[in-house]
């Protein structure tokens, strides 16, 4: 399986969409237009897109509190997401979920999750459904280095392995669980942990879309072939704080600027495809332009959208009560 020109353009489009979306949310949050807690994915785009480029609607993902990137990569409607983050009635979840609970089950997106380590058990369930109903689907849990220390995650590794589930655990290690360094908080290594559970585990540079795409391809192929779960340890960086409003005093001086200058995943992608003549520079600029105006439009729509009313407060608690 190889990436053709259309795939490459689509991958770049999705990565740009995530970056532009997050930059917009950052600005709008700072302007006081967005309520609640917001955790941004900017800098990590190559991971979500590198994995999700392989997926179809029958495949499920579970995300984290830092979920916007996974949602976009899996095909959630960006306008609906933006309205959701603004708490509007036309939001993807009717304004009842917000940033930390964006979901679209019709796209196989089982939700961002406000509980660190909440997703891995759910993904075992989605994988069990795929296996039992023989859909051919796979299920992928995105989790952070913080979640990698939760019991739910380690229990899920074990369950996925002993039940031989088509599950993949993508540990996105951006170096910090909130303000605490993963170099300190994680005993052993992620890949050795995978090995301990008898599943393949591989470490990959999460700034490199092509590297992520390749290891994801292998893991997903194994899962689809009934060869059980895998772990991918993605090393990457986030550009913004743990949450919006975080002054990021715990990072080293110039740490983020250096990454932006040398390892930005969008720049690396662009260099690679232009240098190897896979895509023209103009084509990429065109994508950037159209994404930017689309996100501006999403924010304008979200801003002017109507808010839910009292009639919405008690709906959708149950199907029937």
């Amino acid at each position: 399986m190889q990436l053709n020109r259309d795939d490459l353009k689509e991958a770049y489009r999705r990565m740009c969409l995530i970056r532009e979306f997050e930059d917009k949310v950052h600005d709008e949050f700072a302007a006081g237009n967005i309520p609640g807690f917001v955790h941004l994915y900017a800098g990590e785009e190559a991971s979500a897109v590198g994995v999700c480029m392989h997926l179809e609607d029958r495949d499920a993902i579970a995300s984290t509190h830092r979920g916007h990137g996974h949602c976009i990569a899996k095909g959630c409607d960006a306008e609906g997401m933006m309205s959701e983050i603004y708490g509007k009635k036309d939001g993807l979840c009717g304004g009842k979920g917000g940033s930390m609970h964006i979901a679209d089950l019709s796209k196989g997106m089982l939700g961002a999750n406000g509980i660190v380590g909440g997703g891995p058990p759910l993904i075992c369930g989605a994988a069990l459904t795929a296996k039992t109903l023989k859909t051919g689907g796979v299920a992928i849990a995105f989790l952070g280095d913080g979640a990698s220390n939760q019991g739910t995650t380690l229990e899920s590794y074990n369950l996925a392995k002993i039940w031989n589930l088509p599950a993949i655990f993508v540990v996105e290690d951006n170096g910090y669980a909130e303000s605490t360094a993963s170099a300190w908080s994680v005993a052993g290594t992620q890949t050795k942990r995978a090995e301990g559970f008898g599943m393949p585990g591989v470490e990959v540079d999460g700034h490199d879309f092509f590297a992520v795409w390749e290891v994801a391809r292998e893991a997903i192929e194994r899962a689809r072939n009934g060869e059980g779960p895998s772990l991918i340890h993605v090393k990457l960086n986030r550009y913004y704080g743990h949450f919006e409003g975080d002054a990021i005093t715990y990072k080293g001086e110039g740490e983020i600027d250096k990454i932006k200058a040398t390892k930005d995943c969008l720049n690396l992608f662009k260099q690679r495809v232009v240098e190897t003549s896979l895509l023209e520079s103009d084509e990429l600029s065109e994508i950037e332009g159209s994404v930017k105006s689309y996100i501006d439009q999403c924010a304008a729509t979200a801003m002017s959208g109507s808010t839910p009313t009292e009639a919405d407060l008690m709906t959708d608690v149950y199907l029937k009560y």
Binding site: P121, L122, C124, G125, L128, T132, E155, L159
Partner: peptide, 10 residues
């Protein structure tokens, strides 16, 4: 945690 969560996801 794993199997109750798995049941929820399923």
């Amino acid at each position: 945690s794993a199997f109750i969560g798995c049941a929820a996801g399923a």
